[in-house]
């Protein structure tokens, strides 16, 4: 920060002193407004959303819509599905990425580059485009409509980025620490557990949040690979709400929307700095 602070003082001279507040204000409104508007409307009565002129602050805060969401048939199930899938995916993806990242960062071995490519190139393959062949494959394995299918595909899509970020981080850890441990006769797994993981927690956290976000928000896979309503996750159910409500109950839908966003938002607010730094330093290179 201090080094970039130096740069900053000089470079910023060329950017107009006041002008930059305009894009900043746009940025803030642009980013937060859709959420704020949804938030405010989620407290309104169904008829109130049709009111003109629109009111940003509802006349009275009405929690009935949130109660409707929590009492919605199967809501708990969808919530648990979402939590279960995100947590499982994240734990598995992080473990596998740590191992692979360490392997690539610390060992020179035959076919290293080919294997690295094999893991990294799929980063450019968009997940939505894979649903058709994956669907036929999963159905051949008789795994449609199972958690297994979702977890396997979620983990696979999370590994490339995780491995990349962690390998980059492990590379800059001083080797001396591990060498000391090696002299003490530590085995590789002990080295990872006692030496590497403790000092890599920030990077591990970044990777965890990334894969948590991916799995929590995932839509195409769960849409294509599951059929029964017990398998739905929150985003899937939100999609189905548009169809299944006999009447368009906007406040309830918006309340549902916010309920799906909030857990991630809270996590993000707790770890915000690390995530932002994680993105700007490691994730994008």
């Amino acid at each position: 920060m201090s080094q970039s602070g130096m740069n900053k003082a000089k470079i910023t001279k060329f950017i107009n002193n006041r002008l930059h507040f305009i894009p900043l204000a746009i940025l803030a409104v642009w980013t937060i407004f859709p959420l704020l508007w949804a938030f405010s409307s989620s407290f309104k009565k169904p008829a109130e959303v049709y009111q003109t002129p629109p009111q940003l602050i509802p006349t009275d805060f009405n929690f009935a819509n949130y109660m409707k969401v929590f009492e919605y048939d199967g809501f708990l199930r969808f919530l648990l599905n979402s939590i279960f899938l995100s947590v499982t995916t994240t734990v598995l993806a992080v473990i596998i990425s740590i191992l692979a990242g360490y392997g690539f960062a610390r060992y020179a071995f035959r076919m290293r580059h080919i294997l690295l490519m094999l893991i990294l190139v799929p980063r450019i393959i968009p997940r939505a485009s894979l649903i058709v062949p994956l669907f036929t494959g999963i159905s051949a394995l008789k795994l449609l409509d199972t958690y297994t299918a979702l977890i396997i595909t979620y983990v696979a899509t999370a590994i490339p980025l995780g491995t990349w970020i962690l390998a980059g981080f492990f590379k800059v850890i001083p080797k001396a620490l591990e060498e000391a441990a090696q002299i003490d006769g530590a085995k590789p797994w002990q080295m990872i557990w006692y030496v590497v993981i403790p000092i890599s927690l920030p990077a591990i956290l970044t990777v965890s949040i990334f894969s948590l976000r991916e799995a929590w928000n995932e839509f195409p896979f769960v849409l294509a690979f599951t059929t029964s309503s017990e398998m739905r996750t929150l985003p899937y159910q939100l999609f189905m709400l548009q169809e299944s409500l006999g009447m368009q109950d906007w406040p309830m839908m918006l309340a549902f929307t916010l309920v799906t966003i909030t857990p991630l938002l809270i996590l993000y607010l707790i770890f915000e700095k690390r995530v932002v730094n994680g993105v700007t330093s490691g994730a994008v290179k």
Binding site: N217, P235, I261
Partner: peptide, 12 residues
């Protein structure tokens, strides 16, 4: 603040 939309799912 700027990163918040990144956390919101496409459906939402």
């Amino acid at each position: 603040l700027s990163l918040i939309p990144y956390l919101v799912s496409g459906v939402a």
